[in-house]
């Protein structure tokens, strides 16, 4: 059975957190959807909380600790990414953004991404579309059309005529991600850290005269 590596980052601060809860639901649904396509999901869940200090140190020193480096490699070397953050003050959490800030801006190019967020009320659900989605678009990642927002009330709601229930949204988003993950070959790519830009000459365009 072929397999795909799925990285899951969750930036909830409490333990246990509803952000992690949503991340787990999205990961499980994605695993099921991939199974339906005959693909084994190799899921790596990363609680950014566990490397919070390392992320700040990386911002200060410019290099990751060995522990954070492993996390970065897991994320950037995955076939697809599930990214979930709590909404703090109208946007992704500071820890979430700080982690994104220590990544090489080229390292998520072409990455299929499912974005999710949690919050106390439904009023912040658009944070996914005005904050999370542009962030990953800037990084040239491919964000699936359905993003999943879970307010506290969603955990006890069956949905109604105005909105589908959380499980339905989770399933639809997972289906979209699984389709992209299926054709992703990112985890097999070999990155050459010393690749020189096309046309590079050690003497420059004018040096050889």
């Amino acid at each position: 059975m072929t397999s795909r590596k799925i990285a899951v980052i969750t930036s909830g601060l409490s333990q246990p957190s509803s952000t992690r809860l949503l991340a787990d639901r999205l990961a499980d649904a994605t695993t099921r959807q991939l199974e339906g396509l005959g693909i084994d999901a190799d899921v790596h869940i990363i609680e950014l909380r566990d490397t919070a200090q390392d992320v700040v140190n990386n911002l200060m020193t410019g290099f990751p600790s060995p522990k954070l480096e492993k996390v970065i490699e897991t994320v950037t070397g995955a076939d697809a990414l599930i990214a979930v953050t709590p909404v703090f003050t109208t946007s992704y959490s500071g820890l979430f953004k700080s982690f994104i800030d220590v990544l090489d801006p080229q390292s998520l190019t072409d990455m299929p991404v499912l974005i999710g967020a949690t919050g106390g009320s439904e009023r912040h659900s658009l944070a996914l579309d005005y904050a999370m989605r542009p962030l990953f678009t800037y990084l040239h990642a491919v964000v699936v059309p359905t993003s999943v927002y879970a307010a506290s009330s969603d955990w006890g709601s069956a949905g109604d005529a105005a909105a589908t229930a959380l499980p339905d949204r989770v399933e639809r988003a997972a289906r979209e991600l699984a389709q992209l993950a299926k054709t992703s070959d990112r985890s097999n790519r070999v990155a050459d850290p010393f690749a020189l830009p096309a046309g590079f000459s050690p003497v420059g365009g004018y040096g050889a005269q």
């Binding site: 020193t61 410019g62 290099f63 060995p66 850290p193 010393f194 690749a195 020189l196 830009p197 590079f200 050690p202 003497v203």
Partner: peptide, 29 residues
């Protein structure tokens, strides 16, 4: 890598400041 390439091209020396990053990084360069 462009600067390492330049140093190599001319047969000049290459200096790694070796201060801010772990040795594994400089080893590769």
């Amino acid at each position: 890598p462009e600067i390492a390439e330049q140093a190599a091209f001319y047969g000049d020396g290459f200096f790694a400041n070796n201060i801010f990053w772990p040795k594994e990084h400089y080893m590769k360069l």
